[in-house]
Write a protein that binds this DNA or RNA. Sequence first.
DNA 1: TATGAATGAGCATTCATTCAT
DNA 2: CATGAATGAATGCTCATTCAT
Lengths: 212, 212, 212, 212
Amino acid sequence: MTILLAYYYGGLMPKIVNKEERRREIALSCSDLIHEVGIKKLTVSQAAKTAGIGKGTIYEYFENKEDIIFEIINIHIDKYHEEFEKNIQKEKTTRDKVLHFFKFAIDDSEENMKHFDGFKEYLSIVLSEENEQMLNFNCSCSSFFQVQLTKILQEGINKGELKNEAIDLVEVIMVYERGLSITKMTQNDADIKVLCKKFIDSLFELVEIKKD
Amino acid sequence: MTILLAYYYGGLMPKIVNKEERRREIALSCSDLIHEVGIKKLTVSQAAKTAGIGKGTIYEYFENKEDIIFEIINIHIDKYHEEFEKNIQKEKTTRDKVLHFFKFAIDDSEENMKHFDGFKEYLSIVLSEENEQMLNFNCSCSSFFQVQLTKILQEGINKGELKNEAIDLVEVIMVYERGLSITKMTQNDADIKVLCKKFIDSLFELVEIKKD
Amino acid sequence: MTILLAYYYGGLMPKIVNKEERRREIALSCSDLIHEVGIKKLTVSQAAKTAGIGKGTIYEYFENKEDIIFEIINIHIDKYHEEFEKNIQKEKTTRDKVLHFFKFAIDDSEENMKHFDGFKEYLSIVLSEENEQMLNFNCSCSSFFQVQLTKILQEGINKGELKNEAIDLVEVIMVYERGLSITKMTQNDADIKVLCKKFIDSLFELVEIKKD
Amino acid sequence: MTILLAYYYGGLMPKIVNKEERRREIALSCSDLIHEVGIKKLTVSQAAKTAGIGKGTIYEYFENKEDIIFEIINIHIDKYHEEFEKNIQKEKTTRDKVLHFFKFAIDDSEENMKHFDGFKEYLSIVLSEENEQMLNFNCSCSSFFQVQLTKILQEGINKGELKNEAIDLVEVIMVYERGLSITKMTQNDADIKVLCKKFIDSLFELVEIKKD
DNA sequence: TATGAATGAGCATTCATTCAT
DNA sequence: CATGAATGAATGCTCATTCAT
């Protein structure tokens, strides 16, 4: 857009940027910031500077600081979900797919730990505050994984690998996954992989249709 | 004051307090305060006022604010452990004993919820800070329950109710218990009791010696 | 002493320790402490512990914290004066004796720097507070050196080395010594030795009786 | 607001303040405060109130409390230097100019004593803390006077009043000036004027070219 | 005489949010 | 729409001194 155009259209084109879009844009530019300084330590000033806008402008698009954080976390989780769906398809067997489901708690790679530590901090906030919004959001996240897991198990059942009862254990598996994550966060000496293997072995002992 | 002591001091005897005991005493008097205002919101001034002593006196017995909180939490946990040991003995069958093990996550009574909410806040702190002390303490708490659970299962094995492999699942059970707690904390719509029942049923299906 | 004797003599033998002596004793035991932690950082608790007595007992012998510091500094200065008198006699020529007078500001040996840094901190307090006592004490210290210096110069005059006017410059020399000390304390790049030499050379050019 | 700027911002112009200028402004308004309560006793609250701004605003312009003090002292010293340069020119003879150089230590006028007492407190801080910033600043202040004094003496040499060696004594004179100041600060009974006169007389006896 | 438990005033600093421009 | 200057509440900790015993 040339200066002339800007001048002519200045009033006619009141930058009707889609608020929601701009919101996303700002949050996106701060996406890495949250890993660097941590959720709690993130200041509005930092966010504004990183997004290259004024502090006051932040409040044009976000209710408050929590709202910013919320949007950033949303982005992270969206990314994670996307990746998850992509990767889960690469796993061949049902057992591997279920195992992949525990990857978040098991994988010690730098990349995953960044997500994991971020989630840890996020969880800390969810636990400490009476933030309805975050709590609800948290539930919706669970739904995503519940759907995924249900799909995996159903496929196993359809393929004749698993008993029908397997589907009843979807939530049990999810609870265990949460247990594993929290164990990793709070028990220094726990061997997460072993704990995961034991569970999956037991699980499949229960629901697998043995062929002999 | 005995004559001997009087002789020893050769004069009036200064008040000597058992530091450790007084520490406990002060923490005890603030015990409820932490439920009212929350761990994070607790101020040293509040604690001093509640204990009926001066702010400076607090620092005669505690290193810093965290130290106060730590002691209070200690008291709560000690109490809980005591009660737990008392109650677990009342349960007759192995299944009931294991079920009792999940009581913390299931019981919605006001009394238990006070403990549960307190633990939730405590957990939030453990997750947010790099507080070595609390993290270590947390591990030691787990040990207590691990010992208890091991005892329960071993008795079941000894009585011929459970297979020997049951003992291998101690940690798996504990992970699940953590998962249930965190689920209760973060998933509004989860039916903890059902999730517990499903797990225990599956567990016993695996490790119970069926008599027919 | 048996209990009986303690009873009988309890009132008659009131441990008439010489207050002044005990005061000195306590301060003496804290003498090194002040070099370790610094004057300002010294706490009454530390002093009491170091002296092996109770905190309250300190106040039996000292008015307040400053009073303790005052006594400790007294000890240090007494020691320094003693040493000074001993060492000044070792110098042969009048010029060397005057030079020795500037030793405090020039000598970079660890031992002297301990004294120097202590004095620096002491000076800081004298300058900041309206402590009459310390200020007066400070004056009396100057007197000591003034007497010493006067003696040195008078001897020089008597030996026919210096003109009679030399004695008029006693205070000027002392002012310059103070100037050198403060220069060392506050001017990082100053070459104290050179500044000292220039002054003494000029001084002797003025007051020395040249023999040719 | 120029049209260009309005165009640039494309909207209402936010208030832009010259940070450095406002900093100076705030410090200036607290300038007298430091004489009233003393450097050490100055609280940020006081400073804010005196400047008529909020406590938080202080921290928009100053790193910390020390930074405020530093700026205030800077102002005082700048003023003093300015005055000094103005006044030194009024003195006609070289001797008077040198004498003027000692004015800070000699002048007992209320105005000068305000400066002198301020410097005394400032010196106390320089001596007590390991405040690099202040120490360095102190050195730079010395430079100013060294330059002034060198100019004075050089003019005296050029006019044929002083010997060339006079220039070698610049630092000696400065050391003596410091000595005089500290003497005034710590020796109640010292007659600063006499001490000054004696020194200047001796000095000129050494470096003045006698005409007869 | 000796003690040490109790005290509490005093203070720098952060940062989310507002609002005049 | 955009800005960034202004705000002020809120809190942990130290340590000299007192005084009951």
